[in-house]
Design a protein around this nucleic acid. Structure first.
Length: 429
RNA sequence: UCCACAGUAGCUCAAUGGCAGAGCAUUCGGCUGUUAACCGAAGGGUUGUAGGUUCGAGUCCUACCUGUGGAGCCA
């Protein structure tokens, strides 16, 4: 059996192809079967004289997405998709398919989401899935080649990690309520104290009733955490990381991005150094552009878009008002109203793809913060131990995988960036 | 949670308050190079649900349900 993507090595030879019928056309004594196998598309030509009567009849009756085994001779053919076609000598039906719901015409989003398990077979969706895979590989390659250790945090946690978001709650035997993690970060800090440089990579959960194209209730996040890194080191790491992920992906996914009709000129500019502006400077940008904004608030989606339009590549916004950020972020020694936080805003309206900070490493200040946020200190004793025993400055950030995939693919909505999206009003299929 | 919009054939959509329609899909027939092929024919409907206005409602009104887009929150 030969994969369609490798067909160019078999010109003039007889091969066996196994796949699914994408579409078919016929013209009297000749039938064209367009077959896909997950690696490409192939036009298979069945001439009446070249096959048995049964096979010719079968070729006309295979339904869309029926699985088939096809034997034929490979030839170059500029008229066919992919540049090659198969001159068929035999066609076998493996699994029939009648009345396949997703026809080769337009469909509405509700219908497609209801049939997500089948929608995944389409050209556009397989292209996105391949880009997602390449992004994941780039993420892992980047950290693996820089002395990071993959560190898996728990998914079930006893407390709300940052104390702000709404979490999914479940009963945990006799121990009372437990929650699905919204971030592996606090645990990653323990990992960084053990291994120096770690990254977590896994699903995270938010029960916020967000209903926008930028939100999922279940999404994947990668979170590096590095001992002895300060905020500047953290920003250096984030920009090197983003450059690597974007550049390797657009290099290796040229065909997929073509299917998605993604203009990659702006992605090619994702090179170091990224512009760095403070929160206060970002507020000035908004005001200069005539948008009302009060210092001290967090940026909304529209604000982020306006700020990012000032620059030709991702922009790093640092030193936010501490009040809008999480309790564990270290304050700026030059201005205690500010947190040593950094968000990276992607261009083209894709918004915040990275959020990070230098962490508070002083035991007394951290206890103070926990009290200020009315968090139950007993749940954080283990976290405070990290400051009791050999505390060091350390920093890290989180990158949302689906937002990154959406940005690179140029998607309208995050739901296409993950095989089975979980959203406020949908948990099926 | 709030705001806006939508719901008609399997799908995508039409239909001035006056006979429920088209394209695609499906089935049948035609065509030896098709490119979301094309040509001909057939089958396919409790117009989201419940009320109301009207001689008459897919169309107007009320409530509800479902979905879509956005806000807030966030990655």
């Amino acid at each position: 059996m030969v994969l369609i993507k490798h067909l160019s090595e078999y010109v003039g030879k007889e091969v066996t192809i196994k796949g699914w019928l994408y579409n078919k056309r016929s013209s009297g004594k000749v039938k064209f079967l367009i077959v896909r196998d997950g690696t490409g598309m192939l036009q298979c030509v069945v001439f009446k004289g070249n096959v048995s009567e049964e096979v010719f009849e079968l070729s006309g009756n295979v339904g869309q997405e029926a699985s088939v085994e096809i034997i034929g001779k490979v030839k170059e053919e500029p008229r066919a998709v992919g540049g090659y076609e198969l001159d068929c000598t035999d066609v076998k039906l493996i699994g029939e398919s009648n009345d396949y719901p997703i026809t080769p015409k337009e469909h509405g989003i509700e219908f497609l989401m209801d049939h997500r398990h089948l929608w995944l077979r389409s050209k556009r969706q397989t292209a996105i899935l391949k880009v997602r895979h390449r992004v994941i590989k780039a993420i892992r390659d980047f950290f693996d080649s820089r002395d990071f250790t993959l560190f898996d945090p728990p998914i079930i946690t006893p407390n709300a990690c940052e104390g702000t978001s709404t979490l999914f709650e479940t009963e945990y035997f006799d121990l009372g309520p437990a929650y699905l993690t919204q971030s592996g970060q606090l645990y990653a800090e323990a990992g960084a104290m053990a291994l120096g440089r770690v990254y977590t990579f896994g699903p995270t959960f938010r029960a916020e009733k967000s209903k926008t194209r930028r939100h999922l209730t279940e999404f994947w996040m990668v979170e590096p955490e590095v001992a002895f890194n300060d905020l500047d080191d953290n920003m250096d790491l984030a920009e090197e990381f983003l450059e690597y992920v974007v550049q390797t992906t657009i290099n290796d996914c040229v065909e997929e991005l073509e299917v998605l009709e993604r203009d990659t000129t702006s992605l090619k500019r994702v090179k170091r150094p990224f512009p760095r502006v403070s929160y206060s400077e970002a507020v000035e940008i908004l005001k200069r552009k005539g948008h009302e904004f009060e210092w001290g608030n967090d940026f909304g989606g529209a604000d982020e878009t306006i700020i990012s339009e000032e620059f030709d590549r991702p922009v790093m916004v640092h030193r936010y008002p501490a009040e809008v950020k999480a309790f564990y972020m270290k304050r700026d020694p030059e201005n205690p109203k500010l947190a040593l936080a950094v968000d990276v805003l992607a261009p083209e309206g894709y918004g915040e793809i990275v959020g990070g900070s230098q962490r508070e490493d002083n035991l007394d200040l951290l206890i103070e913060r926990i009290k200020e946020h009315n968090l139950p200190q007993e749940f954080f004793e283990w976290y405070l131990d990290l400051r009791r025993y050999g505390s060091v400055p350390h920093s890290g950030f989180g990158l949302g995988l689906e937002r990154t995939v959406s940005w690179i693919c140029g998607l309208e909505h995050l739901r296409e960036a993950i095989p089975f999206p979980r959203m406020i009003y949908r948990n099926t299929p």
